[in-house]
Design a protein around this nucleic acid. Sequence first.
RNA 1: GGGCGGUUAGCUCAGCGGCCCAGAGCGCUUGCCUUACAAGCAAGAAGUCGGAGGUUCGAAUCCUCCACCGCCCACCA
Length: 925
Amino acid sequence: MSMTSAKAEVKPIDPKMLPRRFNIKERESHWRRIWDDLGIARHDHSAERSCNFVIDSPPPTASGSLHPGHVFSYTHQDLIARYRRMKGWNVVYPMGWDDNGLPTERRVQNYFNVRAEPNVPYIPELNVDQQRKAAGLSKNQTLIVSRENFIELCHIVTAEDEKAYKELFYRLGFSIDWDEEYATIDDRCRRISQRSFLDLETKGHVYTSELPTMWDVDFQTAVAQAEVEDRLTPGAYHDIEFGVYEAIKGEAGMPQSFVISTTRPELIPACVGVTAHPDDDRYKSLFGKYAVTPGFFAKVPIFPSEKADPEKGTGILMLCTFGDENDVEWWREHGLDLRPMVGRDGRATARNFVEYHADTEGWSSLNPEQAQSNYDCLAGQRLKSVRQSIVEMMRQPANSALALNDSGSVSAPLQSEPKPIEHVVRYYEKGNTPIEYIPSRQWFVRLMDKKPLLLQKGAEIEWRPDFMFKRYANWTDGLSHDWAISRQRYFGVPIPIWYPLDEDGAIDHNSYLVATEEMLPVDPTLTPPPGYGEEQRGLPGGFVGEQDVFDTWFTSSMTPQIVARWGEDDDRMEQLFPMDLRPQAHEIIRTWAFYTIVKSVLHHDAVPWHNAMISGFILDPDRKKMSKSRGVAVTPMPLVERYGADAVRYWAANGRLGMDMAYDESIFTIGSKLVTKLYNAGKFVLMQEAEPGAIINELDRAFVAELSDVVDRATDYFENFEFAHALQIIEGFFWESFADNYIELVKRRARSEEDYAGRASAVATLRLGLNVLLRLFAPFVPTITDEVWSWSFAAETGFASVHQAPWPLTDSTARSLSQSVPAKSGEMLSRYELSVVEPPASESSFRVACRAIAAVRKAKHDAQIRLGAPLAALEFTASAGALELLKPVASDVADASGAFDIQFNPTDRSDGMYEALVQAVEQSQ
RNA sequence: GGGCGGUUAGCUCAGCGGCCCAGAGCGCUUGCCUUACAAGCAAGAAGUCGGAGGUUCGAAUCCUCCACCGCCCACCA
């Protein structure tokens, strides 16, 4: 029989060689080294696509701070990676760093006191301090450097952060293939990012246009819809009187004025129209007429609009260039004038007012002198002080629109004191000043026409949990803008575009020049376009390079293509793309997941991955999202120091997919206890001195049947990425069935001097149980499982690490799984195959034994007999059927009870329960 | 205002393709240092399963409505 064909000798471990208590922290570094040496995380680069399981792991922002949320979701990935590896998949688990973007830019600026600007020459091997001296700058003065140099400095700074992340990930035992490390600012990523643009341009998916764009005045850059968030902000309604032009001119039967209510009085100079609801009787007579603005005396049209809400404010409102998104639409629909007063820096720009004539556009006024003198006080001011100044102006009767008509005295335009309110205002997610809509030239990816396609492709992905698809669909459905991809920042991946200059030196934006594939990565501010020489830069008839960089999501949306070397290694692309799994958190479905899908659909007409696994958040104990800004975030490394990596992983593995989890430190303690228990149970099992033999006893076979069932269920859960459920049943079985019951039931038989066959069966079953449980636990608590595995199983099975051993398989899981991947060879494991064990005579034997022994414990407790005390007599009362079921395992129950034999007392009870009657051995004096 | 989750023992959470007296861990009570484990073992107390209706022989589980908590989106005069 195959049971005896193990190739390595089975020797009991010597308990004295093991410390009484397991110090996981000391052993962690040992096992991390072993894993490195064994290369457990490396993958076979030549494997067929069908054998690969490719994970599109999220590159963390290298300048962010570590957070329990990182540990949480990255552990989830590793659980799947380790499971799949044991299942025989060639797991490709790369890691990258996202160092594009504002956080890094700010860090580098502060750290070196430098700023990047375009058209600054690149200095090889730049030494910032020396260069500052050479430029005659003091320590406190900012050194201007080229973008290339800035990128180099960025590498220096992010290297530190990456080290901290890497240290933590390594410590936690994440089986990342570090050979696949990348950074979104490295040459390859910039190349692929720019290649993406080239491809989109060729396919006609990108365009450049000068449009009112959402703009952050502090960072002075365009921002995309996905980067904008709403915040409740204090503001105030200002009721301000506008004049009616026709009435002022003397037309009869016309109201002299009306009152608008605005939260943005600072934009009165930029007012280009007035509107009210078409059915609003209060204002019907004004439609088609003109209004006159107070203070600046602009003549602007009054028109009806369905979008005006009669209930809001006074029901009639002013439109400006541009107060909000509605203003943009009204401006477009009604062909209104453009009076942009807000500059890119958030200050009022200087303007010249001209006398109004029938066909003047822009900054015309019915009283240009007064308008100009009022406006001159505002130019150069930030909007906040512009508001104050204008409110003051509105207190002066002389600024009333009605003052144009000098018939009698007029009152101030401001009708009453401002009424404070809280209202919702748009902000750039990283900014502190509200978004402005500023006309500027930007690059866009056309998305508005692709909603149905994106929804259809999104539905092809298996979202886990499935309701997360709705978040994606919701966002896609609600898109209202094309994707603005250009950013007016210095640090990032440059847009590989140049613009020709005409004979007058004017930029021709429409005949832009695109980089060629061979040039990538390219910085158009340093390299001339094809067909031009660098000496033509900036000259009439020459060219200028695009100065903008891409939105960081433009690059990080390419992680699958970056890992698969799109456009650079077709074989690799074939092997790795589309990927199998995208693990991420739900907060970035609308950004990272969305944009990655966009890119994949536009470039390859394919989904980027087949599965999206969405982890939840870590919440504070008070159920708010834990964040550093709220001052309550815990740094992960001390947790690892304190509880050990396995315990921290255990904590993370408890979080079900998509479910937010309140931060609860007691879970770490439970993880530590599990580690200790595995250590002790392993020690006990492997200390048994008897030779293992054939598994023949009913109890043993019944236990193996139960174990097989657990393997089936855990496997099923893992196949559906539900690692938390898998852990739950594995842990429950280990603790209750294996440690507390099975071990107790066979403890004596395993050392029996009479029943040699039973002893061999018990020892074999104990070893089988431990072996299988170690493999089931391996993804969760990789350190302790490998430690225990190493004591005996490593040599015996030939698998040096449990992480290289195959996932335990039963007949039914082998049948039910549809994967094409062959199970790992189990030759060396024949002793530990579940399928070689004969099924028990009765499926319930193990549970019957457990129930019986529980009845004995209760009886002993009630009779105040010590649990370990021997019994003079033991009698079970139960139904005849239940007693029949008990008989095949009665000797083990008797052994565990400390009784020599068992009396059976049948009754007519029908609940299958056992009642034990115990009699203590007489105490000898 | 729209969408999506959640609401089960003091705490953290399972169970939710209907019937198994409603489960686990922590905490609590009681008893045990039983040669794997006191970071352990055993026994125990503890819940009107958010509320109200409905479907059904039967609902924590399915349907409707409501309440509260959280997230996403919209609202921005």
